[in-house]
C-alpha cells in the first residue's frame, strides 16, 4: 500500500540546512501528491532525493520498502526546462525512454513509442523536433518518455511552470487522467495553489526553508477522483483554495 516513504530525512548543503526537522511522509501507491511551498524551501531537493539524484544527509527514503539507490527507470523525472533532447525528433525522444531497456525487442519498443505518442496527443508531430513544437508539447514529450521508460513513480518539478494559463489547465487535466488510467504514483512540485489543488489527491504544504510540513490537505476527500475544468469554478474548489492560501500564508509567516 505504501509506495514511497520518507523516514526521518534531513538534508543540508554544507552549512545550509534545507531540511532540518526530520521529514516523515508516506505516499501510497497510485497516489498523486503535490509539494506546495514557497520558493527555495527545499521541494526540489526532496524530490531529487527520491529520484536518487541527491542523497539525504540523515534518514532514509524507501521505495517499496527498499532504500532508494542511484537513479533507475522506475522513477521518472520531468523537469521544468531542458525536458527533452533538441537533437531527437518527438518520436525519438519518447523512444529514448526505452533505449536502455533490454526486456523489450525493437519491435515492441516501436509499438510502445507509438502508443505513448498517441496517449499524449503527439502522434502527428512524431517527426518534428522539439524546437518546432510548443512548450506544452515539449512537456508532453517528457511525460511520454517517462511512461515509456516504465516508471511507476513520476517525479515532476514544476513541469508546467513555463506555460500559459490555458495550456497549463489542459495539461493538468491530461496528466490527472493519465495518472488514473495508468495507475501511477506521482510526486509533483509547484508553488501554484490552484494547480496543486486541481491535480492532487493530497497537497503537502511546506514552510519556508528549512522545509517542514505545515499542513496536509486531503483533496481527494473533498473533490473526488475525477477532475474537470468546470470544477475550477465550483464552490468546493473555491473554498478549498481559500483554505489552502490561508495555510500557505501562515507558512510564509512573518515574511508577509
Amino acid at each position: 500500500m505504501v509506495h514511497l516513504q520518507f523516514d526521518r530525512v534531513t538534508k543540508r548543503f554544507g552549512d545550509v540546512p534545507v531540511v532540518e526537522t526530520p521529514f516523515d511522509l508516506s505516499v501510497r501507491r497510485h497516489e498523486f501528491v503535490v509539494f506546495l511551498g514557497p520558493s527555495g524551501c527545499g521541494k526540489t531537493t526532496l524530490m531529487r532525493m527520491v529520484g536518487g539524484l541527491d542523497a539525504p544527509t540523515t534518514g532514509e527514503i524507501r521505495l517499496e520498502g527498499e532504500p532508494v539507490g542511484p537513479p533507475d527507470r522506475r522513477r521518472g523525472m520531468v523537469f521544468q526546462s531542458y525536458s527533452s533532447f533538441p537533437w531527437l525528433t518527438v518520436a525519438e525522444n519518447v523512444a529514448f525512454g526505452m533505449k536502455y531497456r533490454t526486456d523489450l525487442t525493437e519491435t515492441e519498443k516501436a509499438v510502445r513509442a507509438e502508443q505513448y505518442l498517441d496517449l499524449v496527443g503527439l502522434y502527428e508531430f512524431s517527426d518534428h523536433y522539439p524546437n518546432q513544437v510548443s512548450g506544452g508539447m515539449r512537456q508532453r514529450i517528457a511525460i511520454a518518455r517517462t511512461l515509456a521508460a516504465g516508471a511507476d513513480v513520476l517525479l515532476m518539478d514544476e513541469p508546467f511552470g513555463a506555460l500559459d494559463a490555458l495550456r497549463r489547465e489542459q495539461l493538468q487535466t491530461e496528466l490527472r487522467a493519465i495518472q488514473r488510467r495508468d495507475a501511477k504514483t506521482v510526486v509533483f512540485v509547484t508553488h501554484d495553489v490552484e494547480e496543486a489543488l486541481f491535480v492532487a489527491d493530497r497537497v503537502v504544504v511546506f514552510s519556508k526553508r528549512p522545509a517542514r510540513i505545515v499542513t496536509q490537505i486531503d483533496v481527494r476527500s473533498r473533490l473526488g477522483d475525477e477532475r474537470t475544468i468546470e470544477m475550477r469554478d465550483g464552490d468546493d474548489f473555491f473554498a478549498l483554495r481559500r483554505e489552502t492560501i490561508g495555510a500557505v500564508r501562515a507558512a510564509a509567516g512573518d515574511e508577509l
Binding site: 533507475d72 527507470r73 521518472g76 523537469f79 531542458y82 525536458s83 536502455y100 517528457a142 518518455r145
Partner: peptide, 18 residues
C-alpha cells in the same frame, strides 16, 4: 551541457558512459 540532460539519461537507465 545542462545537468538535466544527464539526469534524464540516468532516470531512463543509462550509466555514466552511456
Amino acid at each position: 551541457v545542462p545537468n538535466e540532460y544527464f539526469e534524464i539519461a540516468y532516470t531512463v537507465g543509462a550509466n555514466e558512459r552511456q
